[in-house]
Nucleic acid binder design. Structure first.
Length: 737
DNA sequence: GACTTTCACTAA
DNA sequence: TAGTGAAAGTCC
């Protein structure tokens, strides 16, 4: 509107009103920052831009909302660049805002998780190509003849591709280009993966698998948001069932995301996918090469990649048209990020689906208690697969009461277990011994003065690793060469290893079975490549006795394995974690499920000091339902909030006294809350240990709002206190359903 | 006194 | 988060 009374002076000197937009920048500010839009540029919400921030240029996203008038116009700086890249759509922006609010994280951090591909925002450069221009060369040599025949169809070729296909060297082609026989064209970069074909392989589902698939397909065809939990023992055909859901979604022209806990170990999964769909899905995980990561990001955004299999961070990819998320192994703690933005990808997947209105499928042989509760409450639909596919029998499970059948002095293997291992080896079958403890011994002490080796950084025990000749801290990664004298009293050669680790079990096994081929599988020995080779070797029968930690629990098939021995089934039952029983139940179920896929008779033996413990009873009886029911009531009795409404906040502190101070503050700020636990160094997430916070406070609350109020009030205090607080909002399905 | 490490603060 | 400057700690 024109103001006629405005003076000439005013017209000349009043700064013209610039357009101002909010931009989320990658730093912990509570709101978006305002930036001026340079003349001639247009930006819309979701656009990815480069902006000046202090002394540097950063990448940000134009956000929703009007101009923030509280910012001094003199402070405004201009957007430097708008990237030629699909903007984040409205659903994605709503999702990122939701995650930021729910996890009490700065929105800029959350947005940054969606922009983890530095150079992906400019289009991929075109590839130089050649096309037959229709002219004859001056001299037609045999080599030139071959090239012309190959290119006669008028399609575009890359120089090296054409040379290779015609069996000539590239210089022949250079000659032809010089004469103008070929013209230069620019080709779009090739897709990373071929499009999956939903009809590539016919599904051969039958019985309960077929019914389960039909149920999910029904909800897919109806459209809209639903959460299904596919729950069935190892080998019951869960993957085949959700592959049908993927096929249906692809037929609808939408993209699919498959979240997996640890993508690095899933070559096996990618192959199965390829067998069903004719091509591999796009992969997304932290150790992708930068270049590949950028390509995947961009091709997901443009819709070229139809299916992504990825780790938790894949949830923040900017899909063009996402229509289904599968969360495989939904109970797995690897879905939880405990660093910067604390989130559980399984729950945030449900939120993303809710916002964009499409289905989610959670999958697990041993579902989390939260998901069980959500099924009982009717929020999730349970799809149960009761039997093993193709008649593979479950192993026969027994407990070994270690008080009645103790190992010989200095050993850890019960005579009962040793006998069974011997028999399996004699029959030419494989045995798996599982102990969830890396290294040789979890504790080293001096026999003379009683000194215990402790980590100087975080005060947990240092674990001896004999293969490497080191003692290591499993919390923060500190390590030093194994000493041979006590640092306290100086006595030489009187250090003694206490308790077993897999390396020590291997020693014991080799003593009893010197002729058997023994192999130790542990995450600290060799990289992913070596592990893959070893798993293959085991599958080919190149080992008789395998001794392994956690990682043997993850979906690898050992077809020759007919005996599984659990060395210390009680590990983890008493570590202060409110989920200890649940975790142990899940881990032991997964490990014992490794045996018995051959159709042969197989056996599982669990060494325990607590044979009456509900976890042990549930494992041997196979009655998972009873275990969950009991676990839910147990937690309620322990004054933990009803599950499915767990909220936890971590306040970390350097000393126990400091932690107790925070606990007092919390009780005042949120009197409705129930359980507050102070956990020692071993229970704190790695990220906190790295920041040298040695204790953490785990709060289980009933009301998200109270917890949020408390955390906000703490964050408003000084920087020192702010740094001692990390917030982890765990599970609260009521907020997103 | 030169150099390194730690800490608090700021960015539109 | 990443860059900065001031303050505190370390070394010869």
């Amino acid at each position: 509107m024109k103001d006629d009374s405005k003076s000439l002076f005013g017209e000349l000197f009043e700064t013209p009103r610039r357009k101002v937009v909010p931009v989320l920048v990658p730093m912990p500010a509570p709101t978006a920052y305002s930036y001026a839009v340079p003349d001639g540029l247009t930006v819309e919400p979701g656009a990815i831009v480069q902006v000046p921030l202090g002394p540097r240029q950063v990448i940000g996203v134009v956000w929703d909302g009007g101009e923030d008038t509280s910012v001094d116009p003199k402070k405004l700086r201009e957007i430097t660049k708008v990237f030629d890249c699909p903007p984040l759509d409205k659903d994605m922006r709503t999702f990122l805002d939701w995650v930021a609010a729910y996890t009490l994280s700065p929105p800029g951090y959350v947005a940054r998780m969606a922009l983890r591909a530095p150079a992906a925002f400019d289009p991929e450069p075109m590839i130089e190509g050649l096309r037959y221009a229709g002219y004859e060369p001056e001299r037609l040599t045999p080599a030139r003849q071959k090239v012309l025949e190959m290119a006669a169809d008028g399609l575009s070729w890359t120089k090296s591709g054409l040379a290779h296909a015609s069996g000539v060297s590239t210089s022949v082609i250079d000659g032809l280009v010089k004469q103008g026989v070929f013209e230069q064209v620019f080709l779009p970069p090739p897709p990373l993966v071929a499009a999956p074909d939903p009809d590539y392989a016919e599904n051969r589902l039958a019985g309960p698998q077929k019914e389960a698939a039909e149920e999910i397909l029904d909800s897919l065809r109806k459209g809209g948001f639903t959460v299904s939990l596919i729950d069935g023992v190892t080998g019951s055909g869960k993957t085949e069932v959700y592959f049908e859901a993927i096929a249906e979604t692809l037929k609808q022209g939408k993209q699919v995301l498959i979240l997996l806990p640890e993508i690095a170990l899933t070559a096996n999964f990618l192959e199965r996918f390829q067998d069903r769909f004719g091509s591999k899905p796009g992969e997304w995980h932290s150790d992708l090469a930068t270049r590949t990561r950028e390509k995947v990001w961009r091709q997901v955004a443009t819709g070229e990649i139809r299916v992504v299999a990825g780790a938790r961070s894949a949830l923040f990819l900017p899909f063009e048209n996402l229509g289904l998320i599968i969360v495989d192994e939904e109970h797995d703690p690897a879905f939880k990020q405990e660093d910067r933005v604390f989130y559980n990808a399984r729950d945030m997947a449900v939120v993303r689906a809710r916002i964009a209105n499409f289905p989610v499928v959670l999958v697990s042989a041993t579902p989390s208690v939260e998901s069980q509760v959500n099924c009982i409450a009717g929020r999730y639909t349970r799809i149960h697969l009761p039997t093993r596919f193709a008649d593979a029998a479950m192993p026969d499970l027994h407990l070994i009461d270690m008080r009645r059948a103790p190992p010989e002095r200095g050993g850890f293997l019960s005579p009962i277990l040793l006998r069974s291992v011997g028999k399996a080896v004699e029959r030419g079958e494989q045995a798996l011994l599982f102990l969830n403890r890396r290294g040789y011994a979890p504790l080293t002490l001096c026999r003379v003065c009683g000194h215990r080796f402790q980590c100087p950084q975080c005060s947990s025990w240092l674990v001896e690793h004999r293969f490497r000749g080191q003692i290591q801290c499993h919390q923060c990664g500190y390590h030093e060469p194994t000493p041979n004298s006590c640092p306290e009293c100086g006595t030489l050669d009187h250090l003694v290893a206490c308790g077993p680790g897999v390396e020590r079990i291997a020693e014991e096994v080799e003593k009893h079975f010197p002729d058997a081929r023994t192999l130790v599988l542990s995450s600290d020995i060799g990289g992913v490549k070596r592990l893959r080779l070893e798993l293959e070797a085991i599958a080919n029968g190149e080992a008789d006795i395998v001794i392994g930690t956690q990682l043997v629990a993850k979906g690898h098939n050992f077809p020759l394995m007919t005996l599984v021995g659990i060395i210390d089934a009680d590990i983890g039952l008493s570590n202060g974690d409110p989920r200890a029983a649940e975790r142990t139940f899940q881990l032991l179920s997964q490990v014992t499920g490794r045996a018995g896929r051959t159709g042969r008779k197989s056996l599982g033996l669990l060494q325990t000091f607590q044979p009456q413990h509900p976890v042990m009873q549930a494992i041997v009886s196979g009655d998972a339902a009873a275990f969950y029911e009991r676990e839910i009531t147990e937690r309620e009795r322990a004054q933990l909030p009803p599950y499915g409404r767990l909220v936890s906040i971590i306040v970390s502190a350097d000393t126990r006294a400091e932690a107790e101070g925070h606990a007092r503050g919390l009780r005042q700020a949120a009197p409705h809350e129930s359980g507050i636990m102070i956990l020692g160094p071993a229970e704190a997430p790695l990220a906190l240990i790295r920041g040298r916070h040695r204790f953490r406070l785990l709060v289980h609350g009933r009301r998200n709002s109270d917890m949020q109020a408390f955390v906000r009030s703490m964050l408003e205090r000084g920087p020192k206190e702010r740094r001692s607080i990390q917030v982890q909002v765990d599970v609260d399905p009521q907020s997103f359903l």
